[in-house]
Design a binder for these strands. Structure first.
Lengths: 101, 101
DNA sequence: TCGATGCATAACCAAAAGGTTATCTAATGT
DNA sequence: ACATTAGATAACCTTTTGGTTATGCATCGA
């Protein structure tokens, strides 16, 4: 539904149609999104124009991005470490097998 | 919990401690995260080392980022439009009030 | 002024999320 | 070989999510 809001500003009724959803369901979603600060609402008369507030999403994006980059480093480091350990483990195993005989 | 995984690779038991959570609960979370492709698991003996897979998060980050930037344009455009309309509405109202008298 | 319209709210329901305890399996140390 | 330990799985319970219909309220057009 957020994705649909991407295609620009709409009123509540219009949002309900493409999803197989009733109007009250949409209202509920909008209330949640509004409390989460993800959308803005401008009432003009009896119609409510809804639009996405990009700020918090942008913030989330950069936050995740920072973490992802950090994790990528960790990931690669651990990966090479594990490969090295695996190689060593193989040689240890074979030496143990030699001992058994 | 993902945030805790940020601080590096761990095994399952270690993950349970800081949250007030039982071990099976953690196992459930990990299974979900694994199926979602957000973490990787390397079993070595009876211990499972868990680490974050940064790729999908990075993808999500850039996706959201692109949308956020796009929405920011929309947002600003609509904002200026609304301000203009509000100004016009005020002048129309006052002219109507003049008619009433 | 009065019916139609846009949306919110209330009351309710089914399914899913998220936790628990108890039990099982496989690897480990002794 | 046997007790211990890391983790998974099963069965169950409560809370949250996400939807519904019915109804209320304000605004608009005639």
């Amino acid at each position: 539904m957020l994705e649909q809001l991407a295609s620009g500003e709409t009123n509540v009724g219009t949002l309900a149609e493409p999803h197989a959803m009733s109007q009250p369901a949409v209202s509920k979603h909008l209330r949640v999104l509004e409390r989460a600060g993800l959308i803005r609402r401008a009432r003009q008369g009896r119609e409510h124009r809804i639009r996405v507030d990009p700020e918090p999403l942008e913030a989330a994006s950069t936050w995740i991005g920072r973490y992802a980059r950090f994790w990528k480093q960790e990931f690669d480091a651990v990966d090479t470490y594990l490969k090295a350990r695996a190689k060593q483990a193989r040689s240890e195993t074979s030496s143990k097998e030699r001992e058994k005989r």
